[in-house]
Design a protein around this nucleic acid. Structure first.
Length: 288
DNA sequence: ACGTTATCCTGGTGGC
DNA sequence: TGCCACCAGGATAACG
């Protein structure tokens, strides 16, 4: 499912729902995801206070405090992962097929009559996603995180930075945009969409993109990602946001999934090609 | 080093 | 309501 805008949407919903709450019960499926879910996960994070939830690239980082140390629970949604959030106790949740991690939280406050409960569920049919728990101070040096390129919505990412990163790359720009070391968070949908907005064909060799065009491309990437976040992400098939809402950005897609349909600008049929095993969509008239 | 392909999984769709 | 081939928003090991 998820590229940067979808992960951002999930992250925001999780932060809103569980920040300041305490974990009091964990259920895991016992099935391996991309790598095994730590078997001692519940033992290590029971009683932890969730301080905030943030995002790096397509990783959700749930920061928490235990009596011993600060920890970070890393979630990745892979191709098919999604999160559901319930304002109910974990004991009232009926697990669905492919639920791999269920986190029961409640208000940290003691004494009151009734705790405010929140349960967060990670569901992932294909199990390309993953769950890891590491010390909070080890996040930046972690193998999953340390080699990631810049955040496309961050201040330091601009045309010069992109141009420098791709000037030696012989692969087509579409494939290079999917390389998380070049820029972090773009996936197959938004790579095609950004290239359409920038007027660059996905077939163009990355090294042959001028500084000016690289600058256009960074602006197009930012624009499409920001609009997608504002729309709540792109919901394809049955994918939904944590509260059950669907994202509406699919209505604004110009090329992705539109093979044979008219270009929104010139009406020429959109083309589909395969690059590095992934589908790319573009308008051969508008993109050079 | 770099680019492409195969691979990990399940489920949905379209053709027959 | 069958069967089968093929497709899917990701990331990476292995290969040339």
């Amino acid at each position: 499912m998820p590229e940067l805008p979808e992960v951002e949407t999930v992250k925001a919903a999780l932060d809103d729902a569980v920040k300041g709450k305490t974990i009091h019960h964990i259920i895991t499926s016992g099935k391996n995801m991309r790598w095994p879910i730590p078997s001692d996960l519940e033992k290590r994070i029971n009683g932890a206070l969730i301080t905030h939830v943030r995002r790096r690239a397509k990783y959700i980082l749930m920061e928490m405090k235990t009596q011993k140390q600060d920890l970070c629970l890393i979630l990745h949604l892979g191709m098919s992962g999604s999160v559901r959030i319930y304002p109910e106790s974990i004991t009232d949740i009926i697990p669905k097929k492919h639920d791999h991690l269920i986190i029961g939280c409640r208000d940290s406050h003691q004494s009151g009559h009734k705790h405010g409960h929140i349960t967060a569920v990670l569901n992932d049919p294909r199990r390309f996603g993953g769950v890891a728990l590491i010390p909070a101070d080890a996040v930046d040096a972690h193998p999953l995180i340390k080699n990631l390129g810049p955040e496309p919505l961050g201040n330091q990412w601009n045309g010069d930075a992109l141009h420098a990163a791709i000037t030696t790359r012989q692969a087509p720009i579409k494939s290079v945009l999917l390389d998380q070391h070049v820029v972090a968070g773009i996936g197959n949908i938004y790579a095609s969409e950004a290239l359409y907005l920038a007027g660059i064909t996905p077939r163009r060799k990355a090294s042959r993109i001028s500084k000016a065009k690289a600058n256009d491309l960074t602006r197009s990437v930012r624009q499409v990602l920001e609009k997608a976040i504002a729309a709540g992400g792109t919901s394809l098939r049955d994918h939904v946001q944590p509260g059950g809402e669907i994202g509406y950005f699919a209505q604004q897609l110009h090329v992705y999934g539109r093979e044979g349909k008219p270009c929104h600008y010139c009406a020429k049929p959109i083309k589909m090609i395969r690059q590095s095993g992934r589908a790319s969509f573009y308008c051969s008239q508008c993109q050079r």
